[in-house]
C-alpha cells in the first residue's frame, strides 16, 4: 500500500516501437518524450492545456503531454508527430498541410496534425463545424487557421 516516489519501469509503445523506461512518478510525459526519447516534435508552449502544441495521442486519444504523468502511459501506445509518416511516405494530413500552406512557424503543427488525426479516426467525414469544434484547443498564431481547416477538410473529403 506504500506508494512510489522513486522511478518505476513503464512499458509502452512509442510510434510503433516497444520500449521500457524508468520514470519518476512526477515526470511529465512531454519531458520524457522530449528529453529521454529525443522526440522533440511535441512542444511545450502554454503549459496549461489551452494551446495544443504538446498534443500526442495515447491509444489514439489526444492528450496534453505537458499535463500528463508519464507513468500514465504505462501499457499504452503513444503516437507523436515523428510516428505519423510511414517511413518516407507522409501521412495524408502532412501532405495536405504542406500543399495548403497550413504550416508557418511550425510550432503548432505537430499538435494540429495529431489532433486532426485523432478526429479523423473518430469521424471520417467531419463537417467544417465539427473541425472547428475539435480544434477549440489548438492555437495557431501565424496562419489565421483558414489553411489549416482547409487542409483537414481536404483529407476528410478524400476519405469520404
Amino acid at each position: 500500500m506504500d506508494g512510489a516516489r522513486s522511478p518505476e519501469t513503464i512499458h509502452l509503445v512509442v510510434n510503433g516501437r516497444a520500449c521500457d523506461l524508468e520514470v519518476a512518478p512526477h515526470a511529465l510525459l512531454l519531458d520524457v518524450l522530449r528529453d529521454v526519447l529525443d522526440l522533440k516534435g511535441a512542444k511545450r508552449s502554454c503549459d496549461t492545456q489551452v494551446c495544443g502544441a504538446c498534443t500526442v495521442l495515447i491509444d489514439g486519444m489526444a492528450v496534453s503531454a505537458c499535463t500528463y504523468l508519464a507513468v500514465e502511459a504505462d501499457g499504452r501506445a503513444v503516437l507523436t508527430v515523428e510516428g505519423l509518416a510511414e517511413g518516407e511516405t507522409l501521412h495524408p494530413l502532412q501532405r495536405a498541410f504542406l500543399d495548403a500552406g497550413a504550416v508557418q512557424c511550425g510550432f503548432c503543427t505537430s499538435g494540429m496534425l495529431l489532433t486532426a488525426r485523432a478526429m479523423l479516426a473518430e469521424t471520417t467525414a467531419p463537417s467544417r463545424q465539427e473541425v472547428l469544434h475539435y480544434l477549440r484547443g489548438s492555437l495557431c498564431r501565424c496562419t489565421g487557421y483558414r489553411k489549416i481547416v482547409e487542409a483537414i477538410m481536404a483529407v476528410a473529403e478524400t476519405a469520404r
Partner: peptide, 17 residues
C-alpha cells in the same frame, strides 16, 4: 510550398528549446 515544410510536418525541425 515552403522549403522548410517537410521538416516541420515531420517534427524534425529544431527550435532553440
Amino acid at each position: 510550398p515552403r522549403i522548410d515544410g517537410l521538416e516541420k510536418v515531420t517534427g524534425r525541425a529544431r527550435y532553440v528549446t
